[in-house]
Design a binder for these strands. Structure first.
Lengths: 236, 236
DNA sequence: CTACGCTACCTGTCTAGACAGGTTAGTGCC
DNA sequence: GGCACTAACCTGTCTAGACAGGTAGCGTAG
């Protein structure tokens, strides 16, 4: 699969942002400049930059220029929040226990999700998050090695996977599902729950640079946790 | 704000799909045809169609054509949606059964929520929503009489309370909480669930004209329902 | 009847140039 | 100094034409 010129330009800029060669807020070369650099027509550069803007990697201001976007957090139910921050905001103490951190051979479902060939490996982590010592979230995560090659070398008792991933793979899109399930036995045990106590299961898929970056299952004990969200309808 | 040609084309096609003028799976006019129809260059039509494809409204197959995409079941997590519409969008049949519709004297909690004096009355409704005959949502709602004086005279088997309330009390703000609970016995019975089967409980407060308009508890059977949400982080 | 190849058509991408509308900075006048 | 004007730049969009690669249908040779 050869890469078309606009894709090459996109990737070049995206890599520059990911590698911090361009830092947040910095102005990027203008379309005209990029035309000369890459030897292509402006429409081609324009398409690359327009798509990067749609992915929220850059911010464009007519008459001014194109800038590297600031990484942001969002509030609300669909938010991509760091549980350590959430707990800190409530004035409580966060602690984490890493139950698993390693490599898995992707099963059929995971291969389909991540668009991987047979036998490909995925990174996997399982972490229990506690608020003031009480288990509040069990996080089971599959990570795309291509987007976070150093994933296994992180100390997730100190920095949450979320925090790490947001840094190395800027979030482009997020999809959630939320359902109520009975806690699976092993997870119930880790969380100190009665078997089959109701749990919230949030399944989250995160995309970065047009690829699935992570597939995460978050279990919250129903008796100890509530998701909240608030919004103002837009008038369109 | 004037609309650019590619936006006009986009909207025209999107409207055609929304109004079922183009039905799912149907082939859409080719780019060449649309050029003639709208009197623009192919690049302009191409951009419109490319963006519709990115929004999953259409599916494009090189060498073949452009087709209306099949609708996907999605229930917006932060959206204020009408369950009847959601079910209809999935191509299924909605039915509703009204278990209660009347007046309650507000208890202490409700008085605090709605900022009401002691002894004040509230409207109350309890409705079971079914998708193709299977119970999928049990809706228990407290409504502010000041904002919906005719609430009790509606036929909620025909029009959902949500639909009615959106009409009479424009929504200003919405807050949700989502939690996993064991189904309360009476609700489990209405929904045909095993006692203490895990349920999603969505608690929703809706404000209109600076007052709390409704306090709603929505129970979804965990085994039959998943809330989904998708968002693109914005940097604004 | 089958297999091959031709043709018409479709989307994907690119080009070179154009105009519009916005910002910024410098310049000259009062 | 303060103000208005202008030139240089930036992004947003559009055009008319082009080539590539893929699909589907059809006729013909075997």
């Amino acid at each position: 699969m050869t890469e078309s010129p606009y894709q090459a330009i996109k990737r070049s800029i995206a890599d520059g942002i990911a590698s911090r060669r361009y830092s947040a807020g910095q102005v990027l070369p203008s379309e005209h400049e990029l035309c000369r650099t890459f030897g292509v027509a402006r429409m081609t550069v324009n398409r690359a930059m327009r798509e990067l803007a749609a992915e929220n990697l850059v911010r464009r201001v007519p008459g001014v220029g194109t800038f590297v976007a600031e990484p942001v957090a969002q509030s609300g139910l669909v938010e991509l929040r760091n549980i350590a921050d959430e707990i800190a905001e409530r004035g409580h103490r966060h602690s984490a226990q890493v139950f698993a951190l390693g490599t898995l051979v992707a099963d059929e479902v995971a291969r389909a999700l991540f668009a991987l060939p047979a036998g490909a490996a995925l990174y996997h982590s399982a972490i229990l998050h506690c608020e003031n010592g009480t288990p509040i979230q069990y996080e089971d995560r599959l990570v795309n090695p291509a987007l976070a090659p150093d994933y296994l070398r992180q100390d997730f008792a100190r920095m949450t996977p979320n925090e790490y991933l947001v840094q190395v793979a800027p979030v482009q899109e997020v999809a959630h599902t939320v359902q109520a399930v009975a806690a699976p036995p092993d997870i119930a045990r880790h969380m100190g729950l009665a078997p089959s106590e109701p749990c919230l299961l949030v399944t989250r898929r995160t995309w970065s640079r047009d690829r699935l970056a992570a597939f995460t299952k978050l279990y919250y004990p129903g008796s100890r946790f509530v998701l909240t969200g608030r919004f103002v309808p837009s008038n369109r």
